[in-house]
Amino acid sequence: MNPIQRAVSLVCAACALAAFGVHAQSSTEQEIEKYRQQVGEENPAELWEMRGEALWKQPRGPKHASLEQCDIGLGPGVVKGAYTVLPKYFADTGKVQDLESRLVTCMETLQGLTREEATKNHFGSGPKRSPMEALVAYITSESRGIPMHVSVSRPEEKEAYEIGKKMFFYRAGPHDFACATCHGHPNLRIRLQDLPNLTDPKDAQRAYTTWPGYRVSQGEVRTMQHRLNDCYRQQRFPEPGYASDAVTALTMYLAVNANGGKYNGPAVKR
């Protein structure tokens, strides 16, 4: 082999290698996408949506009342499109609330449940089913096709957004991680999983509008509260309180970044 032939064959070997690498990765991604399409046609989240609708209408608690008069953002009893304006400020509590925090409020005020009862099994696990995950699946499904339009016109809402933004960039813990470590830069991957850059409207829209999601790996519908809880676990942070103001603030930052994106959840997730 002369030097030129050798160089050519080396380059070709490198090309083949590169092509193999790219092929192996894209085929893995293609398989996940194929699976997503297969289950997407029969999204298991529908079972949660149905259970959630029944729970919404079912009289529960000491006051034997349903949640049908709950104001989740667009006035008492309005479910259609309500998720697309959350989180928002509610005058009766004087707080900015996300969907789950708001549902806890309504369970307390309308149904007479204690906060503890309202948040029992908030993350379901097999036979311990979560009423919250079902309710959230139902309510969010009623916003499909409607663009996110979360407001920061009130000072309380603006404040929640600013605090959430600070939380997003806050580095701490034994691994020095912030949310932004994985979700603050374009076109990154962890293993083969694409990481949305949640500071970028396009990525934020795609990510935010597909939560809650049916997690194939867990066999459960997981809400935004769960998603953020699991991020903080992997960030090696202490645990954020369920439906707390801190999680609402972070959600506010993410939701505002996703404004304009057409809501399309609950979706099917890995």
Binding site: I163, M167, E239, G241, S244, A246
Partner: peptide, 10 residues
């Protein structure tokens, strides 16, 4: 405010 809120809620 963010640090105070995290310390309250985590």
């Amino acid at each position: 405010d963010a640090v105070a809120l995290m310390k309250k809620d985590f």
